[in-house]
Design a protein around this nucleic acid. Structure first.
Lengths: 245, 245
DNA sequence: TTATTGAATTATGAATTCATAATTACGTCA
DNA sequence: TGACGTAATTATGAATTCATAATTCAATAA
């Protein structure tokens, strides 16, 4: 009788300790390497590290106060992600955003986003739909106030919310990887008033399709939406390149 | 006059040397790290390193006669690819192939493969179509002879050929990454005679759609084809898991 | 006998060191 | 003056070393 009790008691305790351990590790544990990957990714996406330039490995090591080992590991991972380009014995460069590359990336993102829409329609809860609608309304407010930065921020949250509703980590990871690569371009591309209005209109359609759980329609609109965004970015990129030549 | 000649001569030589350098580097230059990534990937895909097991870092270093530095860099890259799982301070494990994971990966692959079909229809040349048809015929011969391994090999070549015709490196990279993750499962899943016949029939339809450049139809068939393949793999996986429980 | 504690062992993360490849700077020659 | 070759410098790839975290094992107590 007592032995059974202690056995049970011990098991309970073990389970508790495992939970605590799981919580602690998920909160505090971060390898230097992971930290670096994230920081460097931010530096590249935000344009602090300019495309086409050599990655100043030495400077970065000094700035982050780490040795070359974790820095190099981080660069390898970013290279696998396509954000930096490694040339054997010649170091790392920040990948350039070229038009041919964008023309490759956008269709792939379109396919992934369309899939996310389809999956989301099948799985999204009423509560989640309401949350997206709320985000949408907030985005429209920012649009009407002409607040571009805030608009973009909420815009991205909406796409993230749909992605989350799709409940597919593989899809999310792939999408985010591509999204990161072109984010630099997406942010800098200034929209004309006309295009902005069109984008907001498309978002209205996205919401309607989502609320109606019309997977096919949502997929099409998302694809179209991204295609239009690409046109905007393309124009901006061509305008950028002309003065140089 | 002479100066202009020498200037020209020098330029010619420089261009030649650059070409030679480019060729040499593309042939011989391989960092230890790259080599390791490829070798380890093979070991994992072919099942030598079994899913769920800890990666024997020390043993692998000894076997390949390299130090831990390039080995760890390689593991980081493979982790970004999803083939191994890294736990901070606890090392690397070969990622398991779970049913939930497969249920995530297959739809994404479906979307990517459908896109590859669409793009291929728009861009493939008559010559390339003929090459794919040739592969297809060879595959059918292997089917009729009941040669499963050879059938799979040619099968994969067909999908690769369509991917190449799509002419989108980003798409190819993403597809290959996912394909690698599930290849283990695809190979082990034995097909019934019925399913095999169905798969060959689907491939016949794929070829017809490709020859007709019917993008929509090809996309649908490819998606369907992959969906059926998933069903096969799923059955096999469930059959595998049962005896264990 | 079983669970817990603490020491010993092992493995991991990161810094340092070393060898080699690439780049730059300089001097020489046409 | 400009091209070529060589030396000096710098940067990269990889091995080694070191500190610390995790695991194992043995001893002890309940």
């Amino acid at each position: 009788m007592w032995r059974a009790f202690w056995k049970w008691r011990s098991l309970q305790f073990k389970v508790m300790m495992m939970n605590i351990a799981a919580n602690i590790s998920s909160i505090t544990r971060r390898s230097l390497h992971d930290e670096l990957v994230e920081r460097l990714r931010t530096l590249i996406v935000e344009g602090t590290l300019e495309p086409g330039l050599k990655v100043p490995e030495r400077d970065l090591c000094e700035q982050f106060e780490v040795s070359r080992t974790p820095m190099r590991e981080a660069l390898k991972v970013l290279a696998a992600d396509g954000l930096v380009t490694l040339t054997p014995n010649r170091g790392a460069w920040v990948s350039k955003l070229t038009l041919p590359e964008l023309e490759e990336v956008f269709p792939v993102m379109g396919a992934l986003e369309a899939l996310s829409g389809e999956l989301a329609c099948a799985r999204i809860s009423d509560k989640q739909v309401a949350a997206v609608r709320k985000l949408h309304d907030r985005m429209v407010v920012h649009y009407e106030a002409g607040e571009l930065d805030a608009y973009f921020a909420v815009n991205q949250q909406i796409h993230e919310a749909i992605l989350e509703a799709a409940d597919n980590e593989t899809l999310s990871a792939q999408y985010r990887s591509l999204s990161t690569r072109i984010r630099r371009a997406r942010y800098v591309a200034n929209m004309t008033a006309e295009r902005w209005a069109q984008a907001v209109d498309e978002h209205e359609q996205i919401l309607n399709a989502l609320e109606a759980r019309d997977a096919g329609r949502l997929a099409n609109i998302l694809r179209q939406h991204l295609s239009n965004k690409f046109a905007t970015v393309k124009e901006w990129l061509l305008a950028q390149e002309e003065p140089a030549s």
